[in-house]
């Protein structure tokens, strides 16, 4: 039986007079990979920022594991098991790779658990282990994305929110990143994914929501939407 982990209802967000989200609703069930796809400016990043507390909605609700997140400070949301890997990776350039990973575990009190998670992350990303003493700013784009994802895993999340993880990466690395996202699900994590690369995103997702100028215009199983003519035309470039 599936359990709803995150439920967003009638969410509205405004930047001044501009309504970026015009009342969107979606949900993510435990163990799913759910994608939000849409063009630039559709409101994908705004949605993620509002879910993890960087922005506050003007209306609507965000319920995660039964808690209302709309008034929860961003820094408290991480310890509830919901972690956000922002667009552009946003790793701490002036900290070493290892220290960056430790920042991921900032809310973790249990040191043994942190060490255990660290080993898991190093198994998943051997490159990070090799480079753990290096300043994070010296990593390549792909390595920085691995670091951003590794850092998120160290917060011991139940749900990972990923914003454009493939941005700026070579096609080979893009495939690698999506493989890693799949391993998140295999390890029992739930994933909410925002991607410009709609085709790749849909190929690993269970369900998809299509955002257009602040509204959800289509939703459904990824396996069905990927064959939808209008989606193909608008987002898959076929």
């Amino acid at each position: 039986m599936s359990e709803t982990l995150l439920e967003v209802k009638d969410l509205e967000v405004s930047y001044g007079v501009i309504r970026a989200l015009k009342g969107i609703s979606f949900k993510v069930e435990r163990g799913e990979i759910v994608s939000l796809i849409g063009a630039n400016g559709a409101g994908k990043t705004t949605t993620l920022h509002t879910v993890t507390g960087l922005l506050h909605p003007s209306a609507g609700s965000i319920v995660y594991k039964g808690h209302d997140l709309t008034r929860t400070p961003a820094h408290k949301i991480v310890s509830m098991g919901l972690v956000h890997v922002p667009e552009g990776r946003r790793i701490f350039q002036n900290l070493s790779v290892y220290d960056n990973l430790l920042m991921g575990a900032y809310s973790q009190k249990n040191k043994a658990k942190v060490n255990e998670d660290m080993t898991l992350v190093f198994d998943l990303f051997p490159r990070l282990k090799e480079r753990r003493k290096q300043m994070a700013g010296t990593l390549s784009g792909g390595e920085q994305q691995m670091l951003a994802m590794g850092k998120a895993l160290l917060s011991d999340p139940e749900m990972v929110v990923l914003d454009e993880p493939s941005m700026g990466l070579s096609p080979l690395l893009v495939s690698e990143v999506f493989e890693i996202v799949k391993t998140f699900r295999e390890n029992g994590k739930t994933v909410l994914l925002v991607e410009q690369n709609a085709k790749k995103a849909m190929s690993i997702s269970d369900r998809v929501y299509v955002l257009e100028t602040g509204s959800i215009i289509n939703e459904g199983k990824a396996s069905e939407l990927i064959n939808d003519e209008s989606i193909k035309k608008a987002y898959l470039g076929e």
């Binding site: 991480v78 430790l102 920042m103 850092k151």
Partner: peptide, 17 residues
Amino acid sequence: RAMVAVSEDRDAALLMG
């Protein structure tokens, strides 16, 4: 370390808890 993180990117630091 958190101070370095906040000085570099306040929002990213928030997202790390």
